[in-house]
């Protein structure tokens, strides 16, 4: 029960952080971090897969409401929530049986890095392709994806470093 409450708190925290603060950051005019996808990285692995899909869809949709973008955030975050399981199996070499005892903080940094980089780049690529909505400015999509991914990941690692230190 406590865990569920924590997740809902995290959901709203990331949502408000993204909408009220991060959406206003336009580094070098075009680079924007999308930190809300951290929700999908840290969502408990022992919970039902359906609740993750529903939550990530809703989180994306809420952010769409604020950025007038139809369903692009919902679509991108739903997609990485869907492939999270498969990327997880490949990167951490684990099966579904290990889910109950799995914790992201106890894994070696290298594996966490690979895992988050793969999901972030896929998310940002889908997001910027849908924002662009044509093949016309395709090089822009690639550069936006790379720069924004670097920015998002930098914020995520800084944040996780600070918060994990506090707990120990």
């Amino acid at each position: 029960m406590n865990k569920l409450f924590n997740n809902i708190l995290l959901f709203f925290f990331l949502f408000l952080l993204q909408v009220l603060i991060l959406n206003n950051i336009q580094l070098f005019d075009y680079v924007n971090p999308y930190l809300y996808i951290v929700f999908i990285f840290v969502y408990p692995y022992d919970k039902s897969k359906f609740s993750l899909l529903s939550f990530s869809f809703l989180l994306g949709l809420f952010i769409d409401f604020f950025s007038n973008s139809g369903g692009i955030h919902a679509s991108a975050s739903l997609f990485i929530a869907f492939i999270r399981l498969y990327v997880f199996k490949i990167v951490f070499q684990k099966t579904e049986a290990d889910f109950d005892f799995f914790s992201l903080n106890e894994e070696p940094f290298g594996k966490i890095f690979n895992y988050t980089v793969i999901l972030t780049i896929i998310h940002h690529f889908i997001l910027f392709s849908l924002i662009n909505f044509s093949f016309h400015n395709f090089p822009n999509v690639i550069t936006d994806t790379l720069f924004s991914s670097v920015f998002t990941l930098l914020l995520y690692f800084l944040g996780s470093f600070i918060f994990s230190r506090k707990q120990s």
């Binding site: 869809f57 949709l61 369903g71 692009i72 919902a74 679509s75 739903l78 909505f133």
Partner: peptide, 8 residues
């Protein structure tokens, strides 16, 4: 995903 795409 279909819902999201149709909204987009």
């Amino acid at each position: 995903q279909i819902i999201a795409f149709s909204l987009t």
